[in-house]
Each structure stands twice: as structure tokens, then as C-alpha cells.
């Protein structure tokens, strides 16, 4: 079941690559948060301890319950609610709603990101025996999301688009960590979540400052510092 959500997550990147409306990008971020939540929950159903009885014996199952609560906080709370809410606020304050001057037309961006996603599937499936302990579908989609996000950062023009691509890259990395089929210690997960959240918060504040100081929110405005003045 989780495979459907993984594929949808990969497809959501195609939508982000092919549209210029920042509002749509933020909605996609919210959707990605939900998809990651479902991927985690359906992934957990394969675990032997995952059943209704863990709620009856909270004391002995507190580690699992804490883990589930953390996943809900991370995916639904932060990724699909807090970050999109904050970005929407930034969007309303800056009044920049489109990133229409990307270096590559949207149609070509769609084609290239489709090729990246397809390559991710192909490489992961062809190399499946060599990948040993990781799931090929998780691995292929997560790598293609990371690569597509990095590529989008290089072609998009507004700073807000760059922040959105940074967050989608974070979602790709989250999926990759699920691919490892091994849990990171909870303290590491917590730290990672906190760091990414604060990074987005600081970047959002900087976007507002850039909007006040500079004429527009174009990345090209941020090239005044040079070695030879």
C-alpha cells in the first residue's frame, strides 16, 4: 500500500517542477507531509508489534507509542501544517505569487524532472540485488526527489522557490532515511526536525528582509558582493 504513496510523492515533484504558482508549491509541500505520514504508518503495519493492543499496555510499549507520536508530529504537524502555514504568511507579506522567469520553460522542466524520476526507478530496480538491505522503490524515488530539488534550486529565480525546493529536498532525505529500514535514534530525529524547522524559519525571515531591502525577490539581486570591486 505504501508504494502508491511513494509514487504519488515522486509525482508531486513533477507538479512542483511544472508550475510557477508559489501557492501551488506550498500546497504540494502540505500534500507531501500527508504522503510521508501515510508511508510511515503503512510501513509500521509490517512491524510485529503494531496492533491495537499496544494502546492497552502503554507502560511496556511507550517506546513504540512515542515513536508513532513523533512521526505524527514530524509529518503532519511540521511538514504538512507548520511549514506551509509559515510560508503562506511569508507569501502574503511579500506579495510574490509566481516564479515565472525560471531559466528553463516549465514544459522542459516537466520533461527533465520526469526523466530524473524514471531514471531513479530504473537504476534502483536494475541495481536492486546490489542495494541489499534497502527497498529499491524508496531508494529510487528519494534519490530522484533530492536530485530534482537540487536542480530546481539552480533554475528557479525567486528566493522563496529556493526555500521550497530546499524543503522538498528535506522530504526526499526523510524518505531515504525510511529506505534504510533502520531507525535513527529518536534524539537524532528530533534534532534533525528541529534544525530543519529553524532553518526554514530563518530563511523565511530573511526572505521578508530581502523583500524590504531589495527591489524584488529575485536571486539575481543577491549578487552584489564580489571579489573584485
Amino acid at each position: 500500500m505504501e508504494n502508491i504513496f511513494i509514487i504519488l510523492l515522486g509525482l508531486s515533484m513533477l507538479y512542483i517542477a511544472s508550475t510557477s504558482r508559489l501557492k501551488a508549491h506550498i500546497n504540494m509541500l502540505s500534500l507531501q507531509g500527508w504522503l510521508l505520514f501515510f508511508i510511515c504508518i503503512f510501513g509500521l503495519t509490517h512491524e510485529s508489534w503494531f496492533n491495537a493492543q499496544i494502546l492497552q499496555d502503554i507502560k511496556s510499549n511507550w517506546v513504540h507509542i512515542f515513536g508513532i507520536a513523533f512521526i505524527i508530529l514530524e509529518t503532519l504537524g511540521v511538514k504538512s501544517f507548520l511549514i506551509p502555514l509559515f510560508l503562506n504568511k511569508v507569501l502574503n507579506k511579500t506579495h510574490v505569487h509566481r516564479d515565472s522567469d525560471a531559466n528553463i520553460p516549465h514544459f522542459y522542466a516537466l520533461v527533465i524532472s520526469s526523466v530524473i524520476l524514471f531514471s531513479g526507478f530504473m537504476v534502483a530496480n536494475i541495481q536492486a540485488p546490489a542495494l541489499k538491505m534497502i527497498s529499491p522503490l524508496y531508494f529510487g524515488v528519494s534519490v530522484s526527489i533530492i536530485i530534482t530539488s537540487l536542480w530546481l534550486i539552480t533554475i528557479k529565480h525567486t528566493v522563496l522557490s529556493n526555500v521550497i525546493s530546499f524543503i522538498t529536498m528535506g522530504n526526499g532525505i526523510f524518505l531515504l532515511s525510511l529506505a534504510a529500514a533502520k531507525e535513527m535514534p529518536i534524539i537524532v530525529n528530533l534534532g534533525v526536525l528541529l534544525d530543519i524547522f529553524i532553518a526554514v524559519f530563518i530563511l523565511g525571515l530573511l526572505v521578508k528582509e530581502i523583500n524590504t531591502e531589495f527591489e524584488d525577490l529575485e536571486v539575481s539581486q543577491l549578487s552584489d558582493l564580489k571579489d573584485y570591486e
Binding site: 537540487l150 534550486i153 528566493v159 529556493n162 530546499f166 529536498m169 528535506g170 532525505i173 534544525d195 530543519i196 532553518a199 530563518i202 530563511l203 530573511l206 528582509e209 530581502i210 531591502e213 531589495f214 543577491l222 549578487s223 552584489d224 558582493l225
Partner: peptide, 16 residues
Amino acid sequence: IEAAWKYVFICSIGIA
């Protein structure tokens, strides 16, 4: 602002 933006953005990508 330009320096801080580049610093946070580039380093955050690197650290990711």
C-alpha cells in the same frame, strides 16, 4: 542580508 542568505542557504544544503 546577502551574505547571511548565502551562508544559511548554502550551508543548510551542504549539511542536508
